[in-house]
Design a protein around this nucleic acid. Structure first.
Length: 512
RNA sequence: GGUGCCAUCGUAUAACGGUUAGUACUCAAGAUUUUCAUUCUUGCAAUAGGGGUUCGAUUCCCCUUGGCACUACCA
């Protein structure tokens, strides 16, 4: 029974898509691509109270930025949301009519019933009975279509009484879930409660119902999702059976959770700001509560670094290889190499990945990405060739593009102050005299390339027995303002003769 | 509390039932260097505990301990 591989990523638009969700999307995508199947995106917005405006756009934009392609459902293309595919609509809030018929089917077949208990009544019940659960043991004490006469139910419905539809879980049965990562998981139906499948208050199903109906209708073959769903997987198996869809039930794979780097628990939205690193792909301005959360993109991360980093949090190839392109991941990813234990989020490793990928980008690309930072520092319309050169000189020193500024600022702005520590260590009594002489040597240089300069300066130092270190470091302080930066001749090369000499003269005036 | 999932250096992980338990990040030291950094080399550091099965267990089984998740008219 060859079934086309079809997987889905089905987020809720309740805020920014957090990094664990991104990883789930990535694994789904890798699995789909590897098997030549389809990656769908469906929006699960069945909780109208938690809806956050802008969240849907955010999710789609994040996936677009990361290169996680969507074949069907909703996706973002050049800032516009588009819907593609024959199984739509792909927002659950737009599928109300579809769910109605399936709720009815379950009601008619006796797999579900109508319950009128109000939230207040349920709360009272929970307060009264410890560990109260709405199930086979308790449902006959409640106000529902199992305990009330048909006329009574009908009357309440006609009166417009609010109700929910609950799934009727049969007791004393071991429910088996086959998980591609964890193997066979068995749970007794006694511990399952009669889950709410539909709420009349907003005329919407809950996750469980909508999820099963949509996955069935959309012909999803594999459900790859976070481990937090494992406990409800048996319920889902029961639902497929109640609908008579056991034959085409998707295969399940429950992914290990992403854990906090420190302490315990799963990585949460708040950890980002608490620990000082992003937990969201893009910066998010929450219109509902006014908060702003930092994002990987705005922090200077390259999408390929984020992908590589995330791919290795919970999955690993058989060898020592760690640098993977998306294509290589698609090639080598496999669910049976996904680990079972939760993975602590190691931000330092993420920085290292970004460093690696930064080195792989061309100087021209990086120069382009560096532009906003330059502008922030007052450098408008710089010579791009020059920017590319200085970026090439310094990129191996940084993890993020914005950090290039502290490595290259002296190329753009002449020093006016000199680092105290450097002066103390490198600016000696003889330094002014050395610099004055060096000025003359440089003035008379027949050419300004590194080789020429090195060829005249070094013999001069040797002849005068000044010591390379003392002269060159003083020279460096004049040009940079501190004892740091790339090779000195690389600096003079970018600065040019005029600027180089000017900086030495200025330093002589200021430092005496 | 109940149910389920999980357990190799600090972190992410590798290891047909047979290895001096490997790799990367982090950290430390050294080398290189006219500075800072990069780079290179070296080092520190793990099979949670206890029982089995086996000639042999990180690997299979059980128990203990610990961690995590779920336990809503949220997903």
């Amino acid at each position: 029974m060859e079934r086309r591989v079809r997987v889905r990523f089905a987020p809720s638009p309740t805020g920014a898509l957090h990094i664990g969700g991104v990883r789930t999307a990535l694994y789904n995508y890798l699995f789909a691509r590897q098997h030549g199947g389809d990656m769908l995106l469906r929006i699960e917005d069945t909780d109208s109270t938690r809806f956050v405006p802008g969240a849907e756009e955010y999710i789609l934009e994040a996936l677009e930025w990361l290169g996680i392609g969507i074949d069907e459902g909703l996706r973002m293309r050049n800032g516009k949301i588009e819907a593609i595919g024959e199984h739509g609509p792909y927002r659950q809030s737009e599928r109300r009519e579809i769910y109605h018929q399936y709720v009815k089917q379950l009601l008619d077949s006796g797999h579900a019933y109508i319950a009128f208990d109000t939230p207040e009544e349920l709360e009272a019940k929970r307060a009264e009975i410890p560990n109260f659960q709405y199930d086979a043991r308790t449902r006959m004490q409640m106000r529902n279509s199992l305990t009330m006469s048909a006329e009574e139910v009908k009357a309440l419905l006609e009166k417009g009484e609010k109700y929910v539809v609950r799934f009727k879980v049969e007791p004393d049965e071991d429910v088996h879930v086959h998980d591609l990562i964890r193997g066979e998981v068995v749970i007794n139906s006694n511990i399952l409660d009669d889950k709410v499948l539909y709420k009349s208050a907003d005329d919407l199903p809950t996750y469980h119902l909508a999820n099963i109906v949509d996955d069935h209708l959309m012909e999803v073959s594999h459900v790859i999702r976070g481990e937090e769903w494992l406990p409800s997987a048996p319920l889902h198996v029961l639902l497929y059976r109640a609908f008579g869809w056991s034959d085409t039930m998707p295969q399940f794979a429950h992914l290990p959770l992403l854990l906090k780097p420190d302490g315990n628990g799963k990585l949460s939205k708040r950890d980002g700001d608490r620990l000082g690193f992003p937990v969201f792909p893009l910066e998010f301005h929450n219109q509902k509560d006014g908060t702003v959360s930092s994002g990987y993109r705005e922090s200077g991360y390259l999408p390929e670094a984020v992908i590589n980093f995330l791919a290795l949090l919970g999955w690993h190839g058989s060898g020592d290889k760690e640098m993977y392109t998306m294509d290589e991941l698609i090639q080598e990813f496999s669910l049976d190499r996904v680990s079972k234990a939760g993975a602590k989020f190691d931000y330092e490793k993420g920085k290292w990945f970004n460093h690696q990928y930064l080195q792989l980008r061309s100087n021209e690309e990086l120069a382009e990405m560096f532009l906003p930072t330059l502008k922030e520092n007052g450098i408008e319309n710089p010579d791009m060739q020059m920017v590319a050169t200085v970026v090439g000189l310094t990129k191996d020193r940084v993890n993020f593009v914005p950090e290039l500024w502290e490595q290259t600022n002296f190329f753009f702005v002449a020093p006016t102050k000199y680092d105290e520590k450097s002066l103390k260590k490198r600016w000696k009594e003889d330094s002014p005299r050395h610099m004055t002489e060096l000025l003359e040597v440089l003035e008379n240089a027949p050419a300004w390339d590194a080789e020429t300069l090195d060829g005249i300066v070094m013999p001069w130092i040797e002849k005068r027995e000044y010591g390379v270190g003392i002269v060159m470091n003083a020279f460096r302080i004049c040009l940079v303002g501190a004892a740091r930066g790339p090779h000195i001749w690389a600096i003079t090369d970018v600065l040019g003769k005029e600027e180089t000499l000017k900086r030495v003269k200025d330093a002589l005036v200021r430092l005496g």
